[in-house]
Design a protein around this nucleic acid. Structure first.
Lengths: 229, 229
DNA sequence: GCTAAGAACTGACAATTATCATGTTTTAAA
DNA sequence: TTTAAAACATGATAATTGTCAGTTCTTAGC
């Protein structure tokens, strides 16, 4: 009982919305659905991708290993996002690994369909271009944050981002629950440093925790922290 | 005595090579040439661009101010590169400032020409897409470097990059001469720290300096430094 | 429910990097 | 050529962040 792209609301959020009905039918016929368990990899850095992944459900982290063996998370995906575009377009190995943070449903679209459509439908190209332009801008922002902000500021920013993008549960805890390790790899700090910072925020009444769950208590204070007090 | 894009070798290096003869003629008729003095800005962060700049000569830095007032250099341009694409495509304000590092000659191409061509020539779109994909990959690499490598490693990497991309003069000094401030803003460190590091490298026989000029003496040692000794 | 594995956490300490203060050299303009 | 401004450089010190060594808490599998 496969669902059809033509009826999929999610495509409104990504570049597939630029496709004509005929093109969508082609995509739908070629695509395969896939379930990915929490913790499993969708693809690994350095692999060659045969297509792109469209996220129907769940969240994944895009990360890269540095030469010292530490992981750096470059981006978290949202529902509707397409992963692996960069690599397919540049006909290049992926520069990032994708790992499911919670259980995911994704659709795999073979690269031939994508490249064909890019060659024939300029609206699609343009749409992909816009998305990539957006990613590039965000990447620039991350660069500046990494080099100019303290771990404290980057953590504050990350927490606000998580609330903004993935929401919170009924008890005011962040919906997306990451390990402390993941937090450290987003912020770009040692896990111990990160944990200490969370404790500090908790002591100051900015956060609350319950097991691995984290909740934002004083959002304003966090926002002030982001641009140095 | 304006030169014509049709005869310009430089376009081989950028996405304009995907244009047909007729399209090139249109571009050439619409473009204006411009000289930019060392230190002058081509555009500023937050501006709306009416077109893109094609670099004929000289080098510029693309940078962003962080909230603490420090500048972070995100990228140095090469000859043939097109600046401002991201902003024109996303119909967005620029997220970066562009400043000439030495005297430059650039061609300004109005955005209407660019967007029109994007809408009608899928090869052009694809070519732009490839370039943007490449930039995105590089940006990811910078993120990882910023968060996982030490200042020492990032400096070593920057120096090797400068040699690789802009060459050295007859006496073995880097052709592109940057201020210590610029180095600090590339590497993402305080200027004093950066200067200290250069002194250290010099003491260890990795570099030589003469005024502001820097020359690489022991390239192998620098390369080893990049991935932790 | 018990238990082992792995997260989460804490402390002590070391390394890295920033800041402030100050002196020296270079550069460019009068 | 002089001179003021800017760039370069160094020392002393403080702040930030990482590392190592360990303890406690959680959780999944038996």
């Amino acid at each position: 009982m496969e669902s059809r792209c033509e009826n999929c609301i999610i495509r409104q959020f990504n570049s597939l919305r630029a496709l004509s009905k005929e093109e969508l039918i082609k995509v739908s016929n070629a695509k395969t659905s896939k379930k990915v368990k929490k913790g499993d990899a969708l693809f690994l850095e350095g692999q060659k991708l045969d297509g792109v992944y469209c996220v129907r459900n769940g969240v994944s982290k895009l990360s890269k290993l540095s030469s010292n063996g530490k992981e750096q998370i470059v981006k978290l995906t949202n529902i509707g996002e397409i992963m692996g575009q960069r690599s397919v377009i540049a006909e290049d190995y992926t520069n990032l690994s994708a790992t499911a943070i919670n259980d995911m449903e994704v659709c795999f679209i073979p690269k031939e369909i994508i490249t064909n459509t890019l060659n024939t439908n300029p609206y699609f190209s343009l749409e992909v271009l816009r998305h990539m332009a957006h990613d590039l801008k965000e990447a620039d922002d991350v660069i500046v944050n990494m080099s100019q902000k303290t771990v404290k500021q980057r953590l504050a920013e990350a927490l606000l981002y998580l609330k903004e993008n993935y929401g919170e549960d009924d008890n005011g805890f962040l919906q997306l629950s990451l390990s402390r390790d993941d937090y450290a790899n987003i912020v770009g700090a040692a896990t111990e440093s990160l944990i200490r910072m969370i404790s500090e925020f908790k002591k100051k009444g900015l956060l609350k925790t319950e097991g691995k769950k984290i909740g934002i208590v004083n959002e304003c204070a966090l926002k002030e922290l982001v641009d140095g007090f």
